[in-house]
Write a protein that binds this DNA or RNA. Structure first.
Lengths: 120, 120
DNA sequence: TAAGGTACTTTGCATTGCAAGGTACCTTGA
DNA sequence: TCAAGGTACCTTGCAATGCAAAGTACCTTA
């Protein structure tokens, strides 16, 4: 019930998968290994999922607010301190649902593509 | 250059793939065979891509405005006339780009998933 | 000819993505 | 030592999407 107050409601994971797509890859990256924003941007870029600061920072804030991730400040040898993000237990649960939704979407779309190509 | 005036600019097909995802499956459906809105809704539902009228109709209008689809009125034996949508030449071109973007996205995400699962 | 089904449209809101601009910390080298 | 440049984080304002809900209009049929 308390889930309805924020946007990471598991029940509409499928809807979320379409509306706000980026939380999925970002959560995957943080889930793989704790990181901070500029590194996430770099990884997204390497994966050909271009995202910019103005998109990522608000997204991270939302995920923090929804308790999908947590962060600790960590000193750097080359500049100001970094917010190192780590996935939470709840984040892992949501991630599992997002992954399921992704696979369903993947299957659906690829089916539509096959139908399209069958007709030339 | 005139492409920048509407939202189906091929150059940001990749960005579009994330922001407005639905145009891709809808264009696939219309491209496979001419149809009208309620039938598109039915096909999307069968593909587990739930969409509602309030989303689909404006999307169809946008695609019409961008010349990705055209329509003709067609009489029905069970109610008011229908707007039968057909994909245009330009629509097929855009669809090819969207498909390419989709495959890239598909690969990227599945790579991130594998990396995540490798670390447990 | 009224009732109900089918089809299309519009309005208003919440949310996302992004460009652009801003703040603050830290290192380095002149 | 302190200015310059790099790194990191944050915010604001706009355009666009997704959706619920309400509305219009056509057509069949009982």
């Amino acid at each position: 019930m308390s889930d309805t107050t924020h946007s990471f409601n598991i029940e509409n994971a499928k809807s979320q998968m379409r509306k706000g797509f980026l939380e999925f890859p970002v959560l995957l990256i943080i889930g793989t290994s704790p990181t901070y924003a500029p590194d996430i941007l770099k990884q997204l870029k390497e994966a050909n999922l271009l995202v910019v600061e103005g998109t990522l920072y608000p997204l991270l804030s939302r995920m923090k607010r929804a308790d999908l991730v947590s962060y600790t400040w960590e000193e750097s040898k080359s500049g100001p301190p970094r917010k190192m993000y780590t996935i939470t237990k709840e984040g892992k649960d949501v991630l599992a649902h997002l992954e399921e939704s992704w696979r369903a979407l993947d299957t659906s779309v690829n089916t539509l593509i096959k139908q399209y190509e069958k007709g030339n």
